[in-house]
């Protein structure tokens, strides 16, 4: 299935957002996620089913002013 992840088109096998994070080797818990412009909280990632063409954002803490 083809998704747009952090602005890049990727071919992935995962069916849910939680498994996508594992497939892509995101290795810590300090992440915030959104699907098609809407927040998906950590507890909802296992039940968040992905569809081809979904836009996924995976963010983490970063320096800011």
């Amino acid at each position: 299935m083809r998704l747009i992840i952090n602005g890049e088109t990727r071919e992935v096998a995962s069916a849910t957002l939680a498994s996508l994070l594992e497939e892509l080797a995101y290795d810590h818990d300090f992440l915030a996620t959104a699907r098609n412009g809407d927040l998906v909280i950590a507890e909802e990632r296992p039940s968040c089913r992905l569809e081809a063409g979904d836009r996924i954002e995976i963010l983490s803490p970063m320096q800011g002013g």
Binding site: A25, D27, H28, D29, L59, S60, P61, M62, G64
Partner: peptide, 14 residues
């Protein structure tokens, strides 16, 4: 602080 796209496997944000 802010939020930015995280690169897989980098652990930068953490």
């Amino acid at each position: 602080v802010s939020l930015r796209r995280e690169t897989a496997g980098s652990g930068t944000g953490g």
